[in-house]
Structures are given as structure tokens and as C-alpha cells.
Design a binder for these strands. Sequence first.
DNA 1: CGAAGGATTGATAAGTATCAACACGGGTGG
DNA 2: CCACCCGTGTTGATACTTATCAATCCTTCG
Lengths: 263, 263
Amino acid sequence: MMMTREPPKRAAPSILAVDPWLLGNRPKGRMHQLLSEEERARLVPIASVVRFRRGAEIYRTGEPASAMFIIVSGVVKVYSGGDNHITAFLFPGDLCGLAEEGIYANSVRAVTAVTAYQLPLRALRSRLSQDGMLEYHLICKLCQDLRYSQRHAFLVAQRHADSKIATFLQMLEQHQVARGEDAKEIRIPMNRSDIAEYVGMSLAAVSRSFASLVSRGIVKNGDRHHLRIIDRDAFEKIVAGGTVRRSGRRAPSKRGAHKPTAP
Amino acid sequence: MMMTREPPKRAAPSILAVDPWLLGNRPKGRMHQLLSEEERARLVPIASVVRFRRGAEIYRTGEPASAMFIIVSGVVKVYSGGDNHITAFLFPGDLCGLAEEGIYANSVRAVTAVTAYQLPLRALRSRLSQDGMLEYHLICKLCQDLRYSQRHAFLVAQRHADSKIATFLQMLEQHQVARGEDAKEIRIPMNRSDIAEYVGMSLAAVSRSFASLVSRGIVKNGDRHHLRIIDRDAFEKIVAGGTVRRSGRRAPSKRGAHKPTAP
DNA sequence: CGAAGGATTGATAAGTATCAACACGGGTGG
DNA sequence: CCACCCGTGTTGATACTTATCAATCCTTCG
């Protein structure tokens, strides 16, 4: 067991990401702590710990942006205020509180009980202007968020429900791997409804997709929040399968998963 | 060719974005030049101008990331290598070349003839480490890219084809407004096929949607690359209409800290 | 002018949203 | 300890919409 990544006793803000440029000797696809001990120490004075119960709103679209948050424990969902479309799930080491012209660009709510550092924007901006490394690390984190967002768009664009769900599960799994957690079993902290709003399907369709994956022997789920991939090949095939689109002459491969349309 | 938007004589890298935090006296929703003259001047020595013909590949997923690009003129598309899913369209003042662990995370191709500044990563990183403001401005730009990406995911999650297309057109329009260009008429620099791959529909469906919007008298198009919104109300209704989803009676604040409107 | 690619349009089948009823599970109160 | 209840998740039947295949038209450019 690698507990090496365990944060030290004295809690301090921690931001996890992969460095977009330095292809160091670090394990591939593995996030690491961006902030040095010094940086974290310098953030402590301006940070305060805040806790939210499951379901609590952390901030809302349209409010004046007053602080950024670094998740310490728990999971939050980021969603657009108007509809219920979920933009992202954030985990420990993730950052939220992005604003657009001083206004929060989206709403954030705790999916589980959440602990976070709250960093008032004024103080944070002044720190940023003094600390080049902190700025650089924020850049790294934003690059990662951007890639995640792009993958999310890709996921939502998938054609088949099963592909969306499989891709979603794969993202969760990679997420666990990136954090050095045990990945034998995929933890699903959010409920089906949240998943539906993240992948852009109805709750019913999400449920059916899970059922389909299980009945086909591709995955097996203990309870609703823990799941295990049985048939990795089939799983990967489904993830890629949704990719097949009209212009998909290339990467056509598996399309006979269901039914070859005989002319 | 229209040379109207020609940048000033002394060309220098220019990055456009809205500042996420400073809600200055600047017009709402309007991008501005992030880089000061000094910054731009300091970038000149490390930048070289590169030109690409329509359809030319600028870089490809999986290649070692060697440079970033700042678009000077023209439009490029960012797409994932495997399938043809388009992640973003980039315009003058936009940045591309994001990497993931030293590898380009996606492919980029010129949609029109393109001029760009090429900034070698080594030089750029060294500049970043010396120049705090440049880092800060990069952060601003990344925040904006992130929001755009989130909107893209939202667009793709729309249910109805018409809503997707209307939302797409709205984004193009807002884009023009943000750049201070004339917005009476929406310019559509990319072809239908690219639109299809961006919004996640088939080419045929895109075509049908345009036809539908036109036949309903909501928009009118001169040629295929210029379009005008006739019935603004209906247009907005369609944009929002796609938002209506199963749980979409209204923004029902689920259980949480404080719920204002609890039926 | 002709060729090639881009765009439109038609017919069909596939797949999901939707509506709605029902099962499950965990917590609450008797 | 059990019954009940409500939020959550599952399952069924149907309508609606788009993907797909394919033919045709339009544009652009050599």
C-alpha cells in the first residue's frame, strides 16, 4: 500500500494535478501535490476551514465571487444555475470558485459531506501577485481542469447511453488511479440522478445502462456506490464504441456489438 | 480577401480575454487585450510568425509538445485525435498548444488560412518564470477557455438539434460581440461538417436544423457563412428550450443549506 | 466546362426521453 | 422490533427525434 502520498498531520491547502509540461520521472497519469510546503504554509494564514453537509450549497451562480475553495475531503458538484446540468465533480485537491467578471460562473453543492479551505479572493490575489510559483501552479491546475472539461464534452457527445456510462466510469477509475488510490473497485460517490445530469441522459436511462452493463457481465456492482469491472475488453470496447460516428470510417472496428445492419 | 481586421503595423502577440476577477469599468462581456505593450514586446524575441493554409495541420495529439501558438488571424479547430470530435474553435487572440505531461493533448487544424505566433515552450516557460503578470494573464485566459469548454459541454448536452444549433449560433454571436465586431450578422467561418462535429450531431441533422430555423422565419442566411437572426424572441426560446429537461420544471434547489422556494 | 467536395433532402430504423407504476432501503416513530 | 414513509432507483410501454443510408443538388475551383 502506498500511503506515501498521505498528506501530513498539519493540514494545509493542497492542490493536486499533473504538470502539463514537465514530463518528469513521475509516474504517468499520476497527480502530485503542486504546492510546496512553503507555499502551503503561506496559504494557511489566508485560508479558513469550512465544512458543508451533504447537499449544502457552497455558492451560487450570479453571486459576487468572494472566495475560492480547495476541497480537502468529500465531493462537490459544479452545475449551471439555470438548468441542472452538472459541469464537473470535484474531489480533494481540486479547486473551485472560478468567476467571470467578478461573478461566480456556476453553482457548487456538496455531494457528500465536504471539508474545504476557503480563500478570500482579495487575499488570494495579493498572494498570487507576490508568488510566481503559486501562479504557475494555478496554471497547471487550470490546464488540468480544462482537459477534464473537454473530456466531459466528449463524454456527453457520445451516441450510446452505454458508452456514456462506461466512459464516465472510466473517468472515475482514472481519477482514482491518478490519486494513487486503490482502483480495483470503482467508488461512485454521487447518486444516479447526479450522474444523469452529468452525462446528459435521463435518470431512467442511466439506470438502464447500469443494468445493461451488469447483465452483460461487463461490470458487477456491490452496492450502488461500488462497482467492479469484470470484462475489461468489452468495457473498453464500449467506451470506444460510442466514439464511432458518421465520419468514422476510421476507427470503425467494433460496431457489430449489437446488430450488423444487413442490407 | 478582406484585410479589414489587419493588426497594427508592429505586430506582437496579443491575447484576448475577459478578466475573471477585476470587474473593472470595462464593458460587460467584452474581451480586452491582456498583454501590455511591454509584455508583448518581451514576447516578440521568442515568438516567430507561422502561417498555415486552410486545412493544414498545426500539431497532432501525441506529439511532444514543443510550442504554444497565439492565433493572429484566421480560425482553427481543436479536436481529439482518435475520433473527429471538435473540442473548440479558436479565433484571433486565442491560445493553443496545451499539453498533458509534455504531450499535446489534442490536434489542431486550420479552418481558414491562419497566421499565428509560435512560442517555443522552453523560452515561454522561462519567460513565465520571470514575468508574474504574464503568468497572471495566462491564468485569465485559461479561466476563459475553461468556461468556454463548459459551455461547449452544455451545448452538446442539449436535447434537440435546433437548440444545439441555436446555442452554437449564439456562441458565435457573443464571440463577435466580445471582440467588438459588428454583430448584426453572424459570421460562420467553419463548414457544416465542422459544426456537426462540434455540436455532436450528424452533418445531415445540422443541415436540417439550419433549414428548420430558416423556414420558421427565425433566422435568415445570406450565404452559408453569414446569417442573421430575425426573430430574437423565438431564437432565445429555442436556445433555452433545449435546456428543458426532465427535472427542469425550474431550478429546483434540492435539499441544502438554505432553500428559498420550497413547494 | 467538368469534376470533386460540400450541402441538402428523403425514407427508414434505432435509441432515448418521457410518463408512470413499482421496488428497494434506510431512517423514523410507535 | 416492526410498520411505515419518503427519497431513490428500477422497470415497462409508447412517442418522438435523430442517425444512417443514399440520391441529388449546389459550389467551388482547376
